[in-house]
Nucleic acid binder design. Sequence first.
DNA 1: GTTAGTTGATTGAGTACTCAACCAGTACCA
DNA 2: TGGTACTGGTTGAGTACTCAATCAACTAAC
Lengths: 170, 170
Amino acid sequence: MRIQETRWLSAGEQLAWRSFLTACQTLFGAIDAQLLRDSDIPHGYYEILVRLSETPGRALRMTQLAEASASSKSRLSHAVARLEERGWVRRTNCPTDRRGQVAELTDEGFAALAAAAPGHVAQVRRSLIDRLTPEQVDQLREISAAIVEGAEPLPPGVEPCESEGCAGTP
Amino acid sequence: MRIQETRWLSAGEQLAWRSFLTACQTLFGAIDAQLLRDSDIPHGYYEILVRLSETPGRALRMTQLAEASASSKSRLSHAVARLEERGWVRRTNCPTDRRGQVAELTDEGFAALAAAAPGHVAQVRRSLIDRLTPEQVDQLREISAAIVEGAEPLPPGVEPCESEGCAGTP
DNA sequence: GTTAGTTGATTGAGTACTCAACCAGTACCA
DNA sequence: TGGTACTGGTTGAGTACTCAATCAACTAAC
């Protein structure tokens, strides 16, 4: 892997990469800060709550939840423990597999999510969506899809990332 | 700020936002993992080393370094302390301002950076650049610039983010 | 020159994440 | 039936980050 010569980045590529890096730091810094300041929810936790809220029954097996929220098992386990302390999630034994655990969003958790959502969405608009043209939003979606799955050109009928669902809209 | 109705994201906007989120997690996860696995350097530390390596004299005041690497003062202070333990950075008193500290990249630090750079660049290609068309790389640069500075359409002669410089190429 | 305010940087406590090690239960197969 | 391997999930140690508090030194005003 180190045998061949390194293909360094061109000036343009490097500029793109660095700008992207800075943009992500700026963006996620702002997103995280808003959620933490206004709702005392780290962004990672918010993601977990959203995934649960979108599931029929508002409950998911730990492993599925980990996948859905792009999280390691370990991380999810820690996170759900914290969310349980807050009373936002409840863990119960899985009826079909005695190893399994089911994480379920409580009413308090749903309420917390519903309360946090407007501010969060506003921040996503401020920091990202409203700064881009509609064309750029499309471009960003395609670029993201390419990054995630290795260059799929986004065929019309296939969802590239995940389901839709209205992110905690009450 | 909560007076007006929430402008929820449209389906397309939401898809873009979520895909972007997933893409960033995937991307930075891979970048970080490679650097840590092959060179035992967290990406944040790598950034610091790169900034220093690009500065004439390979030294910067702490505050400037914090700005350049998009880091808080506190974070930088902790990070430089760790880097100093590894012998990669040296802290000296600033001659003109006795409050100040100057962080200087040591030869060992430069060597570590030079050793890590090829693998890192290869990973950036694998995970990002080579998955995009040249047009998409340009689009990504413009989108990033818009995120960072509120919608600058990137006039030809102006660098939107930072200097060029060849990221630790020996 | 002494006070007030600001800036440069560090420190410590608290939180979230990672990795590796670890059980407990399930599945496969002899 | 009794291994062996795998899966689901948790735990604990270690690391990196955040925030708030702190200290030291510079600047400006009177």
